[in-house]
């Protein structure tokens, strides 16, 4: 059975003449025990989907279910069986770490002791600060406390809305390790992130932009859908190289990618690379290096993105 299903969900905001389409006919499903990633930039509609699935918002049309319950009719049942960590820190700043956890356990009719095994690994890291007010915690500790509070009633489905945004690399790695351990306990996880490098850590991912689901697949299959050959180039003068490659007529796309730039050709002429190199060598670069590479999630996302703002 699917833990989460969405069927043609549409959601608009605003009044008649100024309607904003936040979610545009979104459909996908998440299997039980799966770690499913919702990958897309700010404003793509990720949070709206989370709010619909956690029964905080009704869609204009379409249906959705979570843990077998309909989001419109059975909302009280869903609220008892899911954990939700919103993008914005939403615990009580003026309660201590322990008081927050106690509070969430109590409103779900349980105790910290009863489900302590679920949060133990995470809670021991913040336990030394259990008497500190939540508002006084560091970003990384707030994030851990929020996860504990979302888990304390033993949810079957966990919703995490951008848990790692603005968090440094070290804390991000730690956080994903925690998620792996939760998945191993059988909890279904729907997690959103704007960081494309985190997509490969999910079982399956949906790419979302402007309210539309662009692709749903495993990370491996997602990048296999890349339609053309992709090349990477680098030299000692990246900015000049970027301008030169972009001005070459047969280039379809060229984007900076960390230490190199990734580009594609309009045609699949086997001599493309030789011709380009000949052109570039008119004003030689030192250490010029061009090679074919395997595309990543971010390459694919850029490839299927709607042209930014033309």
């Amino acid at each position: 059975m699917a833990a989460i299903t969405l069927d043609n969900i549409v959601k608009t905001y605003g009044e008649k003449d100024k309607k904003v389409l936040a979610v545009d006919r979104a459909s996908f499903s998440v299997e039980e025990g799966e770690m499913f990633g919702l990958i897309g930039p700010d404003g793509a509609g990720k949070t709206t989907l989370f709010r619909i699935l956690t029964t905080l918002l009704l869609p204009d049309s379409g249906t959705a279910s979570v843990a077998g319950y309909d989001t419109a009719k059975d909302y009280t049942k869903i609220r008892n069986s899911v954990g939700y960590m919103p993008g914005r820190f939403s615990l009580y700043q003026d309660l201590t770490v322990e008081e927050n956890l106690q509070f969430f356990a109590t409103i779900f009719n349980t105790t910290i002791e009863e489900n302590y095994h679920l949060i133990k690994d995470i809670y021991v890291q913040i336990e030394p600060f259990k008497d500190r007010r939540a508002g006084k915690l560091s970003g990384g500790m707030k994030q851990k406390l929020a996860l504990c509070c979302a888990l304390i009633h033993k949810p079957t489905v966990l919703f995490l809305d951008e848990p790692t945004t603005g968090v440094d690399v070290v804390s991000r790695v730690e956080f994903w390790d925690m998620l792996k351990r939760l998945k191993a306990q059988g909890i279904t996880i729907l997690v959103s992130t704007p960081y494309m490098d985190e997509a490969v850590l999910c079982d399956r991912i949906a790419l979302i932009q402007n309210g539309k689901i662009l692709s749903v697949d495993t990370p491996e299959n997602t990048v296999r859908k890349y339609p053309t050959k992709l090349y990477a180039a680098r030299s000692d003068d990246m900015h000049r190289l970027l301008k030169e490659i972009r001005s070459y007529p047969d280039i379809a796309s060229c984007f900076t990618f960390g230490e190199s730039m990734h580009f594609t050709f309009r045609s699949d002429d086997p001599h493309n690379i030789e011709k380009l190199k000949a052109k570039l060598n008119k004003a030689p670069h030192e250490y010029l290096e061009i090679k074919e590479i395997q595309p990543g999630i971010e390459d694919y996302f850029i490839q299927i993105s709607e042209p930014a703002h033309e």
């Binding site: 897309g40 930039p41 970027l242 993105s305």
Partner: peptide, 24 residues
């Protein structure tokens, strides 16, 4: 100060084009 947080991958790169131009 963290100018590109949350921005989509294409815009993030266009933003860096502007940075390069300013540096030029």
């Amino acid at each position: 100060d963290e100018p590109t947080g949350g921005v989509d991958p294409v815009t993030r790169r266009q933003f860096w084009d502007l940075i390069y131009e300013a540096a030029d």
